[in-house]
Design a protein around this nucleic acid. Structure first.
Lengths: 169, 169
DNA sequence: CTTGGAAAGTCAACAAGGCTGACATAAAAT
DNA sequence: ATTTTATGTCAGCCTTGTTGACTTTCCAAG
């Protein structure tokens, strides 16, 4: 049960670095990510939205007033891709786009009441699964989970992520 | 650094279950999964393949001789989707499809030498990142990582995954 | 002040890879 | 003989990525 890793009495056991263990980690990521997105996907489907809409809503919620350009950098897609999603969200009254006061080229993005309501529904579905998994695995496992995920990110997203960690609670 | 979780001296600290912690876990999954797929994506792009091809190759490698139906169940896509991918892989000589000996309706799938070569390249790219992350985080963190991922899967993939764990090393 | 380039955002069109539905074939099961 | 199962195929749709071309706004150099 305790996995083949760890447990090195004195020296570090390196069994957790075998190709076999790595391969299992890869498959675990694949299956877990699918589960991770399944609940919000169901909610979105009913509204004719996709994951792209979810991501936009998530990050606008996290950083209200963010510009389109900021969002582009975080999401890592082209502005044209993002724009299509934003257009539908704005059209449906979930997101509000305000022309920048200092720089009128910029658009600052905010969730409307309606957008915030959907955000809560999506977020709660996803947190529900995460909470269950966290509870089942326990605090030590969760700390390890976060450590490995952070080490797996590309440098730039990691930098953003760590900035968030510090600024947040 | 040690995260807000765990560390409960006597009783269980439940700080790791706050909405804030859960939200960070959600974002960590998002950024990590993107990193996780980035290296193979670069290799695939040069060959005009996509992630769908990678997934097929991966699971055919894992279970040589698997049938189309098995693959459908694992990948969770429609046969039309999978067929499009398989057709190109077979056409390009990366995958071989053999009519079943017992049940001639079935097609058993195998990687050719060429297919196995690409599989190794993709797999090595992905394992490289996983290995670096594992090494940075250490065996205890890796065990926790795996525990949380398993708890996050849907029941059916988890069953398949655990079966694999037992049968494997 | 004007003009030219950079930056932000929008529109149009294309491709990959999901999806559904309809249908064909062969083999197995009843 | 009929039905079910496994697979493959065609057509067509949707989401979400892409590139290219364009507008508006800003700023800085002349």
């Amino acid at each position: 049960m305790a996995e083949s890793g760890g447990s090195g009495a004195g020296g570090e056991s390196l069994l957790f670095l075998t190709d076999e263990q790595l391969r299992k980690g890869i498959e675990a990521m694949f299956f877990a990510y699918r589960g991770f997105t399944a609940d919000p996907d169901r909610i979105l489907e009913a509204l004719d939205y996709g994951r792209a809409h979810h991501r936009a809503i998530h990050f606008i919620h996290r950083s209200p007033g963010t510009t389109v350009n900021n969002l582009l950098a975080i999401l890592g897609v082209t502005k044209q891709s993002l724009n299509r999603v934003l257009r539908s969200l704005i059209g449906d009254g979930l997101v509000e786009s305000r022309v920048g006061r200092q720089d009128k080229r910029e658009r600052h993005l905010f969730l409307t009441e309606k957008g915030a309501t959907l955000e809560r529904a999506l977020s709660e579905a996803q947190r529900g699964r995460m909470r269950t998994a966290y509870r089942a695995a326990g605090p030590v496992a969760v700390a390890g989970f976060r450590q490995v995920l952070e080490a797996m990110m590309d440098p730039e997203p990691r930098r953003q992520f760590q900035t968030l960690k510090e600024s947040g609670a």
